[in-house]
Structures are given as structure tokens and as C-alpha cells.
């Protein structure tokens, strides 16, 4: 039987993204701000898309590769992702 759930809360996703950004940019998590656009950290707009591959694995569902172009901050992206429904068998 398959059912749909919202797997992660906005806060959990924001925390994951903050850690990911900090690790990617080799900076402290305190230097990552939820409303600063990813591009403002100097992260290449194409390189940033690689995060979607890891996010897919973590959340457990397909995510558009260009999601970070459409939701360009941690706040907007985590809000969007928290609404995604994931199927479980």
C-alpha cells in the first residue's frame, strides 16, 4: 500500500541546506543566512544545482535540477520542499 506524507518540516530542510551551503563554501554555518540568495555567496549558479542531486537522495523523491533558480534562498527553497509529498510503499 502506498501513502503520501510530507517527509520533512521547513525547519529541518532549512537546517540541512544551511549545513550543505556551509560545507560547500567552507564557511561557518553562522555565516549562512536564510534570506540571502545563493548567488550572493559567490556560488556558481550551475555548481549550486548539484545540491539537488543530494537533496533528492535525502528527501527521497525527484527534484527539478533548476529548483535553486526558482527558489533562490534557503527560506524559499525549504518552504517549497516542505510541501512536497513523498510516496512510501
Amino acid at each position: 500500500m502506498e501513502h503520501q506524507v510530507h517527509k520533512f518540516s521547513t525547519e529541518e530542510i532549512a537546517e540541512w541546506l544551511t549545513q550543505k551551503m556551509a560545507s560547500e563554501l567552507a564557511i561557518s554555518i553562522h555565516q549562512v543566512h536564510p534570506d540571502t540568495p545563493f548567488a550572493d555567496y559567490g556560488l556558481n549558479s550551475m555548481a549550486a544545482l548539484n545540491i539537488t542531486g543530494e537533496m533528492e537522495e535525502w528527501i527521497g523523491t525527484d527534484i527539478s535540477a533548476t529548483l535553486l533558480w526558482d527558489y533562490p534562498t534557503i527560506t524559499s527553497l525549504s518552504e517549497y520542499l516542505s510541501k512536497i509529498e513523498v510516496s512510501f510503499a
Binding site: 548539484n50 542531486g53 543530494e54 533528492e56
Partner: peptide, 8 residues
């Protein structure tokens, strides 16, 4: 087609 290969 996609813009990145997502590690594949």
C-alpha cells in the same frame, strides 16, 4: 535532457 547529471 537536463542541465546537470545529478552525480550520475
Amino acid at each position: 535532457l537536463d542541465v546537470i547529471s545529478k552525480g550520475k
